[in-house]
Amino acid sequence: MNTLSTRRRLLAVFAGGFCGALARALLSVLIQSHLGSGWPYDILLINLSGALLLAFCTVLADATTLLAPTRRLFVNVGFIGAYTTFSSLAMGDVLLLAHGDWLPAFLYLILSIVGGCIVILLGDWLGQLFLQRVRHRAHKVASRPLTRPLSDQSGVVDIDDDLLLPEQDARRWRQ
């Protein structure tokens, strides 16, 4: 990640943050118009969906599939970081508490804490599943019989170099 220039990194986070904040604001208005603003459905749904997406994207980024370092900054740090929010969550809960709505406030808190952990695990699992699919397909392509005889090809073809899936995804689990 340090090989990227500072300007490029900040620009990626800035652009991602712009889109993420805008997506949250629009989605929040949309959800409130459908479900009302009596209970913070909007922030809960936004946070949980964002956490799911983050876990999924982090698995892909760690396996260097689809998400290169700049894109990782754009998606993970910028977009999803700005899309999800903790400050609005805290404010929504304190406002519920201030109105004496103890049960809704408690429910909101528990759903956020426990639900957040569950969707992270779910997103991680979905990411691993997706990786397995991609790897399976890559192997299928790689094991296709060569149409040209080997003697026609210049140089040595190392099929493993083209898989784009290094053994890095196992590294996370060993740490």
């Binding site: 904040a21 946070n47 956490a51 700005a82 929010t85 400050s87 957040g116 992270i120």
Partner: peptide, 20 residues
């Protein structure tokens, strides 16, 4: 300020990712 700046500043997803 609240929906924009502080919403972009604070994060829920990274926090839970780190916790897990």
């Amino acid at each position: 300020l609240a929906t924009g700046f502080l919403g972009g500043y604070t994060t829920f997803s990274t926090m839970h990712w780190e916790g897990v």
